[in-house]
Each structure stands twice: as C-alpha cells, then as structure tokens.
Design a protein around this nucleic acid. Sequence first.
DNA 1: ACCCAGGCGGGCG
DNA 2: CGCCCGCATGGG
Length: 305
Amino acid sequence: MQDFHATSMQVKDFDLRHTFESAQPLTFHADYNPALNSLIYASGKNLISVMHVGGTGSGKVMVVSEDLGFASNEVIRRFRLNDNMRSIYKKINTDQFIAESIKRYRGMRLTLNDPWETTVCFIISQFNNVKRIRSIIKNMVARFGEPILDGDNKIIGRAFPSSEILRNASIKELMKCGTGFRARYIKSAAEYCTDNLDLYGLNQNDYYGLKEALMEIDGVGDKVADCIILMGYGNLNAFPVDVWVKRTIEKVYFKGKKKKIKEIHKFAEDMWQNWRGYTQQYLFWHFRQMKNDERRVYEGIKQRY
DNA sequence: ACCCAGGCGGGCG
DNA sequence: CGCCCGCATGGG
C-alpha cells in the first residue's frame, strides 16, 4: 500500500457525472464509478481519486492521493473548479436551446488536460465514435503508458504515454491499439512534438498563434486544433465545429439552412464572444443526447438578442 | 449485411 | 482556394 491522504472542498455548480460522460480527453481513459460518483485518473506519475458528494448546485469534492498538495491543485485546475459557472451561464445563455442544456447539464465543466494527451485524443477522434475513442485510448495507455507503482511495486495505474514513447512505437504496434489509418498521424505528431514543437512552451492566451502552430502537426486540422486549444490549453475562444455542432447551429439558429464552417465560427464569435468554448460544450452535448424527434422542436428557436 | 462515427490530407478544377 | 474523395475499425 501507498500512503494515501484525503481532503475535501466545497464546490458550487459542479457535476462530476455530466463532466465525465460528456466525452472529454480526461474521461477517455479514467475509470468512473457511477455508483460512488467517483473517478480515478493518472496525472503524470500521480494517481488521483475524485469523489463528488452532495448536489450539483452545492456539493463537496473529495480528493484522495499520495501527494495532497499536488492533487488538490491538480483537481481544481483539471476540472476548472475556479470557474464561476453562475457568471459563465449568464454570458452564454442567449436562448431557449442553451437554457435547456444548462438546465439538464448544470455543473458540466470543461476539463483542462495535458496538451500532448489532448492532441493524441483528438487525432484519434477523427472519423470515429466516442465508444471506440475510449477503447483505443485505453489500449494505448495499457500498451505504452509508464506504470505507476505502489509501495509494494505493484502496478496501480499507468501514465498517458509521452510523445517520446510514442515516437519510438512502430506503426504496427499503434495499429494494434485500434488506431487504424490514424496510426501514421500519431507517429508523425509524436516525432514533430518531440523534435520540432514544444507544446508546453506555447502561449495559452494567443488563440490564433496556437491554432497556427497546432495545425502544423500532421493529422491536426481546423476542428482538432480547436479541441486542443479548448481542452488542452483552456482557451475559451476556441469553438470546435464538428458535424454535431454544425448540425446544431444550422438547425437551431438557421432553420436548417447549410452554413460553411467559417460562417459558423463567425456566428459563434458574435454570439458568445470569448466564452464560446463553454457554449460549444453545452451545445454539443445537449444536441448529442437528444433523440431525433426532440431535435425537431428546436428548429428556428427565438433568441434573446 | 450495411451504415455510421466529435476530420484530415491530398488531388483536382 | 473550394470541393470531393478515401480512409481502418467495430458497434448498432
């Protein structure tokens, strides 16, 4: 056994379940226990357990880890617990559709993840589905991740594999994880991010700078770059436009009329300014969770502004 | 069996 | 540029 410690903190407007289920990088390989509403994940070489008790509006987050000083800061950072959701909801709640999403998924947070990990996760996400993304990422962690040991040298978890590790993996080994045609992107990105680009040296506040730099990575285009900027750097100016967000915007705000990606970016910027990253998460998840007949109700909704 | 999944790069007009 | 196509793989 390792020497674990526990602490707890009061949190407002937080819901671990919605956050976990809403398909973000952290949640692709963490172990979530719905009965306990708790999550175990690796942050570098540290294993952290988070449990959410009490309600969404006002509850408690319990943290268990070997290094509590590190872990409690990590949890606050990772789940963006310092975000004032009351104020963010006020900014992004421009209409009935978003109001409904906030009502259903109140407490769902954006997560802030390691930039490299986020890059790999979203390269894998392309032309793929969430279930398979989870399984591929888990396979990669199991096969390539550095083991985390307890006091008896027993493996109790694995870190997400670094770019150095993955650049030395063969395409064949990567394919065995189920990566498919994305294996060469991962390999190439691992080489590039080890030799030519320091992901940890980029300015998280410079949206356009980040986008330009990230799109130099093989396998990273407009949408994946925005995901990395949003969930790997925490820059809320990013508004990733995937097929779901595109459908949502077209259906809800343009009566189903087709719009170009550029037009959607412009629309999002005008509507939700520098909070649009949060809007994207609430639009995406609400629309994804709805059934088709329910989606029809939201065509051409009234906007407040 | 067939279809689709949080896109991207390359090739063509 | 803008548009179109193929792409590994497994679950519904």
